[in-house]
Design a protein around this nucleic acid. Structure first.
Lengths: 344, 344
DNA sequence: TTGAAAGCGCTACCAC
DNA sequence: GTGGTAGCGCTTTCAA
């Protein structure tokens, strides 16, 4: 299994030392003479010795791995977050174990179970759209498992959290649409129970209010599974297009909803932005090449991952119980492209 | 760490049995009476006992984890492969550890080193575009580490491999372009040293030959880093467009090259497919929404991941040394869209 | 400054 | 059918 099969015992034997001396020497303990340390370290390097991380884990009661729960890594936002997580985790000597909920509450519970049974030192989680009850996490949290929420957070657990500035992302996108001359702005979004939905919606409402625009409630459509099924987006869209007056712009949240909305509008033969403008949350690197180029709210996925991991490791390594928690809010970026610019 | 802190020892004490009896009972050993087994198992379930996987690993000399090396998970092809890998690995009780080379040979060597130091039972790898020398893998292979190649494989190591039918993918895309009325088909591809480049190129050549089309060698452009840097694609494109006669179609390989080529052509204001047609390898789910909708060669990423993992686990669990190796070749799919259809 | 020995949780060998 | 015990590789106390 470990393909540097040399152990601490081999070194001890070869150097006529005891295992404990070698162990201490390798960890640069002050109770070992410089001479011995040098001897051991050089021999270890020469033989390319690596401590067996499993034995270390067993001894120290730490697994040196971090569990991750996201909806799906195929979503570029999450793959960027994972890149950020790994960049910090690997540097600090942690493994990561990635699991996906595919927006299912049951899968989330199952994954969290698997992760804890596999011995993780901490958990990074973005809740599934279906998740309403978080008892499965509260139990673990009470037992002392360090947890950091990111993206879709819960306020029913008091711990560190990292989110994009969802409120401002929603505000800026909506404001931009208004300033581009669109006054009937619909909103297609994830289910109302998850945090990002509420925050982005609040931004949308405020931007409308600030501009003195009033719109009916049925301009807002929720997708129960966050757009996992194309039909939920299709329904939302059809309902919006049947309204009188019809919206002349749509603000969407989440990669899936945004790109699927674009797909559906194109398929219906409706012209963007002439007949309806579109601006939405997405982290795809293809926004420029879409038809039409898509105005997007971009979240700093990589940085979110980094920050969350730093916070988690600080919880894991903290000597005393942590009682002061913070929520990091990272700015989003609005990229204005053709899909939301009125031709004049 | 393990938040089901109950151990086999606790059970033994509570039930007035020995640890070994409990251990055997839990593993349903035939040398334990049904009565005792039932007693132990019920108590274990009641107390939600889970064996500590780290202790098991240490004991058995197996880590129950699989190392993965890909270029980047942001590429949808690879995230689909990883989904396939995880679907099999988790079912079989294996963890996966994902690392990314970002097309760098140095990073690949480093990642492989980290993985083996972290004790993996086997390795799934798609080589970086920079990799020419695979001594870092040959050493491990000689030492007995099970390795399965996928996507970008090497024939310098005799082991299981899983690839898409790159030859036929290249053949079909090129044939389709020819049949659509394009006779001057350029090819922008990855560096010539990696397997997928050669195979797709062979398909391209054969399709041209079968149609009796002869094209100059400078219709083929290689991107040294597989399109990691936009400039390499930009150069390739500029060189192609400066040719006389200019190509009237381009066949591209790899997600990155394909979508970047689309981006650049759009940026130059050149019309697709009127002035130049485009067909390329990509697994993006957005092909339909691109401008224009993009003719794509799709690889069964999920299935590739599944197959590779099944093969790897069979190597890991094999009692006797395996000497018969196979290369699984999975079919690609050609999706014809507007980018390669001549307006008539 | 060094070493012997216990023990992390589990499995497996060998006695009883 | 059951239990004692050694040992996986490492860290850490305690004794020398």
């Amino acid at each position: 299994m470990n393909f540097n099969a040399i152990t601490i015992r081999d070194i001890a034997k070869e150097l006529n030392l005891s295992v404990s001396t070698v162990s201490k020497a390798l960890r640069d303990s002050h109770e070992i003479s410089e001479k011995t340390k040098k001897l051991v370290m050089e021999y270890a390097r020469e033989k390319n010795y690596r401590p067996n991380p499993i034995a270390q884990s067993l001894k120290q009661g730490l697994s040196k791995s971090i569990g991750i729960v996201v909806s799906t890594i195929e979503n570029q936002f999450f793959s960027q977050v994972i890149n950020g997580i790994e960049s910090v985790a690997y540097k600090e000597g942690y493994n990561v174990i990635i699991t996906q909920t595919h927006e299912s509450y049951d899968l989330e519970v199952k994954n969290v179970g698997h992760l804890t049974h596999r011995s993780i030192d901490g958990l990074l989680i973005s809740l599934s759209t279906e998740t309403k009850d978080i008892e499965h996490l509260q139990r673990l949290h009470r037992q002392g498992l360090p947890i950091v929420f990111f993206d879709r957070v819960s306020n029913e657990i008091d711990t560190h959290k990292v989110i994009a500035d969802n409120y401002r992302g929603g505000y800026n996108a909506t404001k931009h649409l208004i300033e581009s001359g669109f006054d009937r702005i619909a909103h297609i979004t994830s289910p109302p129970n998850i945090s990002i939905t509420k925050e982005r919606l609040a931004g949308y409402h405020q931007a409308l209010a600030d501009a003195g625009v009033t719109l009916p409630d049925n301009y807002i459509k929720y997708c129960p599974h966050g757009g996992r099924d194309i039909s939920e987006i299709e329904n939302a869209l059809n309902e919006l297009l049947a309204l009188d007056p019809k919206p002349n712009a749509i603000f969407t949240t989440s990669d899936r909803i945004t790109t699927t909305t674009l797909f559906l509008i194109n398929k219906m033969g409706i012209k963007i932005p002439e007949e309806i403008a579109l601006a939405g949350y997405t982290n795809t690197t293809l926004a420029d090449v879409l038809n039409p180029p898509l105005t997007s709210v971009y979240q700093p996925g990589f940085e979110i991952g980094q920050k969350a991991t730093e916070m988690l490791i600080s919880l894991i390594t903290s000597k005393r119980p942590v009682t002061e928690f913070q929520t990091a809010v990272l700015p989003t970026q609005l990229f204005v492209r053709k899909s939301s610019i009125k031709k004049s």
